[in-house]
Amino acid sequence: MACTTLVLNKSTLLIRTQGLPAISVKCFSTDPDPKPIKSLSLLKKGTGGRSSFNGIVATVFGASGFLGRYVCNKLGKQGSQIIVPYRGDFGDVHRLRLVGDLGQVLFQRFQPRDDESIRKAIKYSNVVINLVGREFATKNFSLHDCNVEFAGRLARLSKEMGVDKFIHVSALNADPNPPTLYIPGGSKFYRTKYQGEKEVKREFPGATIFRPSDIYGQGDRFLRYYAHYFRSFQQTLAVYKKGEETIKQPVFASDVAAAIVAACKDPDAFGKTYQAVGPKRYYLSDLLDWFHVIMKKTHEAHGYTRYDLRYDPVMPIKLIITSLFPGTPMGDISPERVEREGHTDIFRKSLPTLEDLGVQLTNMEDQVPWELKPSAAFLSYDEEMGEFEKPVPPNPVPL
């Protein structure tokens, strides 16, 4: 009986049979190697839904945050492949598996100070979105570490890895020297956000930057901040100058997410800075009164009253208490948050808005099924409100 021996030598298979010459069989094609795919858009397939692939492979840093969930859902709904880097427990991001089709949402551990782990997360992406931001310092990362150093490192590595688009989320009132209202030295958040923009532009000149105002939506830190019991004291709410000289322009989270996704596909968004603001401007005092009417906490029913924060002896004690415990402050009350709530949102007519990306903005009062509408004293930014115009005193909302 003849004896046959199979020998696999690298890419060649040798078949030896006793008494016969060996037969050599190649295990690979002798044709020239195919050309590498330079653009992932060539792999587009489907009709554009969650089970499609639109050619966008996006790495979303900060996807576990409030805005990140909206952005990932918008990306997955349009057939994008999403890479979610996460630093903590997988339970913080596991719910994002449902935003895309099977195999379209991938997870990658990373460390903000480890360049190699960041490279792995953006290696196959053509879009990188930075939603990482911090409103208060922790024992491991300061405001400068999160808002400046990490933003610059991510922009630099994205440029090195050949990423096509880099999108960075900043803040509306980012300023190198923000005015001081309540805490000494002014807002470090606004200062570091401005420095982060400069670092991103220096490392990635074509980056697209979004400057959002206060963002509201399900699970936000704007509406829930004022509704938290720790923010008020015995049915009284301390606000800087009673909120009657502060104008806010809050924006819906879904509108910001839709604009970020639109910027991923719009070539005209390259290198631009967008103001992510809502369609209307509101006096903070009117907003707070409106919130408490909706919550059925009026003066008659609950004893709700606004007064000037500058004369409040309780708030400094609360800030000391929250600083003694690590992690997220109780009710998101931190010195930075209290300082920023007194700043008027400055709208610059020279910069584009979300409407320039084709987003139809949502009115805040239309989101709440309540017959009472905000005060008629609200100003429209593109008609009556100038860039640095001083606001006039509002008409109080009857409670």
Rank of each mutant, 00 (worst) to 15 (best):
T5I: 12
L6I: 10
L8P: 04
K10F: 14
T12H: 15
L13P: 09
L20A: 10
P21E: 06
P21G: 00
I23F: 13
S24L: 02
K26L: 04
C27F: 05
S29V: 06
P32Q: 08
P32W: 02
P34G: 02
P34V: 10
P36Y: 12
L42V: 05
R50I: 12
I56H: 09
I56P: 09
A58H: 05
A63D: 02
S64E: 05
G68R: 09
V71W: 00
N73Q: 04
K74W: 02
I83L: 07
V84W: 09
L96N: 04
V99Q: 09
V99L: 10
D115K: 15
I118M: 05
A121I: 05
V127M: 03
V127E: 05
V127R: 10
L131P: 12
G133K: 00
S142E: 08
S142H: 03
S142P: 10
C146K: 00
G152M: 13
L154E: 04
E160M: 12
V163W: 03
H168F: 03
V169M: 14
N173P: 06
N173K: 11
A174Q: 01
P176R: 09
I183M: 06
T192D: 04
K193L: 08
Y194I: 03
K198S: 01
V200Y: 01
V200D: 00
K201Q: 11
I209D: 11
P212C: 02
D214K: 06
G217W: 04
F222M: 15
F222H: 12
Y225T: 08
Y226H: 05
Y226W: 08
A227C: 03
F233P: 01
L237P: 00
E244L: 15
E245T: 12
Q249A: 14
D255C: 08
A257N: 11
A257S: 14
A257H: 11
V261Y: 13
C264I: 02
K265T: 05
D266A: 15
D268M: 07
G278R: 13
G278C: 13
P279E: 09
L287Y: 05
W290L: 06
W290N: 02
V293R: 10
V293M: 13
M295R: 15
K297G: 13
E300Y: 01
E300W: 06
A301Q: 14
H302T: 00
R310N: 13
P316C: 10
S323T: 02
S323F: 01
M330N: 02
I333Q: 14
S334E: 05
E341P: 08
G342D: 10
T344M: 02
K349S: 12
L357T: 00
L357I: 03
V359Y: 08
T362Y: 03
Q367G: 00
L372V: 15
K373S: 13
F378P: 05
E384F: 01
E387R: 09
P391Q: 07
V392K: 03
P393T: 06
